[in-house]
């Protein structure tokens, strides 16, 4: 259980170590206020690959095992809500901007420690959605980054095979985004009550 939580000073240590090892890395710590206390490292996308390589190969933590890659979506309204609503507050002065985010949970099998969490954020949610792919460093990210590309629309540069994973290839839009509107182009299976019934009724009327 002791190695379960990365305690804050440790995370700060890791951030400092990366900043010392990688030039202009600019890694900051992102604080997690929940009882889980899993704080994370916020990487600059342009330097992320270097930092990740260092973490895996040269750092004293030897983070050889990438367990989970997750996408997050932070639209404007999720961030501007009052503080208790905002999950991850930045320790740095810079407030969070509307962005898409990729979160990586790293472990070390050799030293059995973790999770060390790194996160990267895109510049915005519309046209600058590129992040460097970490698949060349951890193969584990291959399918998971494809999934994020599919469901969130983050474009991972340097990914060997960036295609849709779960949705079909012709599908447009990214369903996991919080402002996703589902298309209205399929037949609803009517339910006895509620919105879907109304929808299906209007649909039937429309076709008559």
């Amino acid at each position: 259980m002791e190695n379960e939580k990365a305690i804050l000073p440790e995370v700060q240590q890791i951030a400092d170590a990366i900043n010392a090892a990688v030039k202009n890395a600019g890694v900051t710590v992102s604080i997690n206020p929940s009882p889980a206390e899993q704080h994370s490292l916020l990487l600059f996308p342009t330097k992320a690959r270097e930092c990740a390589q260092w973490l895996k190969a040269e750092s004293p933590w030897q983070l050889d095992y990438l367990s989970n890659v997750s996408g997050n979506d932070w639209p404007e309204d999720a961030i501007t809500k009052q503080t208790p609503k905002q999950p991850v507050k930045d320790a740095g002065e810079e407030p969070m901007h509307p962005c898409l985010e990729a979160v990586y949970h790293l472990y070390s099998i050799r030293q059995s420690l973790g999770p060390i969490i790194i996160r990267m954020r895109t510049e915005n949610r519309s046209d600058k959605v590129e992040l460097p792919s970490l698949t060349p460093i951890w193969r584990s990210a291959e399918l998971q980054e494809r999934e994020i590309f599919d469901l969130y629309g983050i474009h991972f540069e340097g990914h060997p095979d960036l295609r849709r994973l779960l949705m079909w290839d012709e599908f447009e839009d990214h369903p996991m985004r919080r402002d996703y509107v589902e298309p209205d182009d399929y037949d609803y299976e009517p339910t006895p009550h509620g919105d879907v019934l109304k929808k299906s009724l209007t649909q039937q009327e429309g076709t008559v």
């Binding site: 997690n32 206020p33 929940s34 009882p35 889980a36 899993q38 367990s67 989970n68 997750s70 997050n72 999720a78 809500k81 208790p84 609503k85 905002q86 999950p87 991850v88 979160v103 949970h105 999770p115 969490i117």
Partner: peptide, 29 residues
């Protein structure tokens, strides 16, 4: 409470993890 957590267990098929972010509402963010 607001925050995030990643928990994992050794499921029969391998490492099964759940990553959750809460914004303090009754539904996960």
């Amino acid at each position: 409470p607001p925050g995030e957590a990643y928990g994992r267990i050794e499921a029969p098929k391998g490492e099964l993890g759940f990553y959750l972010i809460s914004d303090g509402s009754p539904k996960p963010y």
